[in-house]
Write a protein that binds this DNA or RNA. Structure first.
Lengths: 128, 128
DNA sequence: TCATCATATCATCATTCAATGATACGATGA
DNA sequence: TCATCGTATCATTGAATGATGATATGATGA
């Protein structure tokens, strides 16, 4: 345990979950299999964007596809996918808004306004 | 449940887990709190890189810091962080190598060699 | 006070990624 | 066979991200 390849694998798994659009798709699939067109309706994503994300989720093993006529039905591939989503919900319930204000994944202008240290802000201000 | 803001929050949480280096750090912290210098040793990451990732993990609520003299000790902030890591391990045990070969998060040259559909490869070949 | 140690910050650069729009594919029924 | 529908592919583009190296900060003890 703990070798680099394991971390790569894990990182790829988590990356499947680390996007708004994919989470919306996964959420839609929690209630059961859906055809792509229905996923497009439910999520509001474009058709090609949806298809791209589905390919990603599928390649990463989070969902499975089944073709029926012209339709392709997707479903969660494993019950533990749901477990992970639920667990994330629980953790978030505790962490609350902290994450939403996380500076590291926002534009630099937002960073200034968010959670950069006071020192850095002071310095930044004095440079202007 | 299921609104856009929730997905944003979840995505940010998962992004904390979605990087090799951060997973290595989290793994190192599973056994207990460590000072930054020790994390640098254990993971082999550079000092500034480690510090940047720690800031991200901290801002996202996955780890907590405690200063003692010149040293700063980091630890996992919540037992469920470990649970998520373990769950990911379990899922991976089933998915096996599928994820490692996922095309969507590799360079395009690797994609060609990895899991692009046969059709696309055929087309691509015929174009050369 | 000063030198040193541990850590944090930040600008820069190369890479990765998501969204889009156009187009291709494949199954169906007329 | 042909038109149509549902889905997949792919090139392009702008934005986000991770690694690096240099430098700053802040605590400590001489």
């Amino acid at each position: 345990m703990g070798n680099n390849e394991t971390y790569e694998l894990q990182a790829k798994l988590f990356r499947g979950f680390s996007d708004d659009s994919r989470l919306a798709i996964l959420e839609a699939l929690r209630e059961g299999p859906l055809a792509v067109g229905r996923i497009v309706e439910v999520t509001g994503l474009s058709q090609s964007n949806t298809s791209n994300h589905l390919r990603c989720l599928s390649a990463c093993g989070l969902v499975e596809a089944e073709q029926r006529g012209r339709f392709v039905y997707y479903r969660l591939s494993d019950a533990r996918i749901e477990t992970m989503l639920r667990l994330a919900d629980e953790v978030l319930a505790d962490l609350g808004r902290r994450i939403f204000e996380c500076a590291n994944y926002r534009s630099s202008s937002e960073v200034d306004a968010a959670c950069v240290t006071e020192q850095a802000q002071k310095k930044r201000r004095s440079r202007l």
